[in-house]
Each structure stands twice: as C-alpha cells, then as structure tokens.
C-alpha cells in the first residue's frame, strides 16, 4: 500500500530528518514507528499524506506517486488517509457531533449520510452518550477517541497516528490502543508513531525503528527496543 524508495528529507534549516529510507507497508498491517525524538518518525508519516514532500526519492500510495501528485489531487489522497494527532485538534466551539460531522461536510457528504454515519462511529469509539458535549467537557482519552472517530468517519484506507497516546495516562492509552486494534481488525491499515514502550512490547506487531533519519531495525513481531543477548 505504501512504498518509500530511497527517500531523503532535508528541511530548509539544514536538518536531514530522513536519510535514504526504503520501506514497504502492506495493506491491512499494523505498524509501530519507534525511535527517539527527532529520529524522523513524524516526517515519515507526513510524507505519506503529503504534508511534506521528499527532497529525494519516491513515495507511492496505492501505486500512485505522492510526491509527483498535482496540488489539486492532494485532497483526494488525504480523503483516503485518516490522521490522529497527539494534541487531538478538536474544534473547541463545536460539539462532539459537529466536530466529526465537520470532517464529512468538507468532503461534501450528504446531510443524510452525516446523520447516519456520525452516531455509528461514535458508537464504535464508545462515545454514543457524548454526542452533544463540547470537547472541554471530555477527558483526554475521550477527546482522543473523538479525534479517532473523526479520522475514520470518511472510511479511509489508512490511519496515521502520531503519538496518539502521548498525552494520556496508561489506562487511557490502553483504551486507545484497543480501539486502534479494532479499527485495524476491520481492515484499515494503521501506522502509529509512538514512545509507548509497554504497548509496543505487548502487541508484538511490526516495528520499524528509526534513528537519525535512518531505519535501524525492522522486525515483523518486534519490541520497542532491540533485544540484547540471545536469552533476553
């Protein structure tokens, strides 16, 4: 689904965030991106939905070049990708319902479809009772679930989550992870950048470790850190 070939990203300030990265992500997979801050995790995710364009190399999404895409095609790429942010980015003056409906309105969904689909995703993320509540009345975990609901409401093929549990306590983080797994189980590909060591270690999914803009490890059933020694 996603292919990156020899991708380098250097920012105008001289920082090389990614250095000659080649990676392939299968449809339906669940992937953790790990590594210290500044290793290039965020940059890698941004290249997929063309928040950034690579300095060199090629990014393909579903076989189509993302970096050579015309500007007016970019919105249609993004409709296939749901993004979950660490800081939620909910609109404070809109209710939970309206925050999610907003994502449908801007892609010109019908009112009928919005009325049907928004309660459906709220049910799925377990917020069916909070439809008319404003974001500030919700806990951090609940806000993140609204953000996830918004990301999946347009039925994307891929969910990109940049440290979705970064601002949450461990219990809430677990809830969010359960939810992400459920979304993945329904067929959506998930790419998650994270620092949550326990979660990564428990889940045993594919782990791509970045350091200094390079992939230093890519394991099918990996852990947060490289195992030292043969017998652990």
């Amino acid at each position: 689904m996603i292919q990156m070939h020899k991708v380098t990203k250097a920012y105008p300030n001289g920082v090389t965030a990614l250095d000659d990265v080649t990676v392939r992500i299968q449809k339906g997979s669940f992937i953790f991106l790990v590594g210290p801050s500044g290793a290039g995790k965020s940059t890698l995710t941004k290249l997929i939905f063309r928040e950034e364009v690579p300095t060199r190399g090629q990014v393909l999404f579903n076989g189509k070049s993302v970096n050579r895409m015309r500007a007016r095609e970019v919105p249609f790429l993004r409709r296939q990708i749901g993004v979950v942010f660490q800081d939620f980015r909910l609109l404070p003056h809109k209710t939970v319902f309206d925050n999610i409906a907003f994502a449908m309105k801007v892609v010109e969904a019908s009112v009928k479809k919005i009325r049907y689909r928004v309660p459906e995703v709220l049910e799925m993320v377990g917020l069916a009772t909070k439809v008319n509540v404003y974001p500030h009345q919700l806990s951090g975990g609940e806000q993140q679930r609204v953000c996830i609901a918004r990301a999946i409401v347009n039925e994307p093929l891929l969910i990109i989550a940049d440290e979705p549990t970064g601002n949450l306590d461990p219990d809430m983080a677990r809830e969010i992870m359960t939810l992400m797994l459920e979304i993945n189980r329904r067929g959506t590909t998930v790419v998650m950048a994270t620092h949550a060591r326990e979660i990564v270690d428990v889940m045993r999914r594919r782990v791509i470790a970045l350091e200094g803009g390079r992939i230093v490890r890519d394991e099918e059933h990996g852990s947060y850190e490289q195992k030292r020694g043969p017998a652990r």
Partner: peptide, 17 residues
C-alpha cells in the same frame, strides 16, 4: 487556522477552503 488545518488534513479541496 486550526479549522483550516483540519479541513486540509481530512481532504477538503483548496477552493472549498
């Protein structure tokens, strides 16, 4: 700007924004 950012991330077209 926040609204605009969200609109962009969920795939609103430029003229829609």
């Amino acid at each position: 700007r926040q609204e605009v950012g969200i609109m962009k991330s969920v795939g609103a077209t430029n003229w829609f924004i």
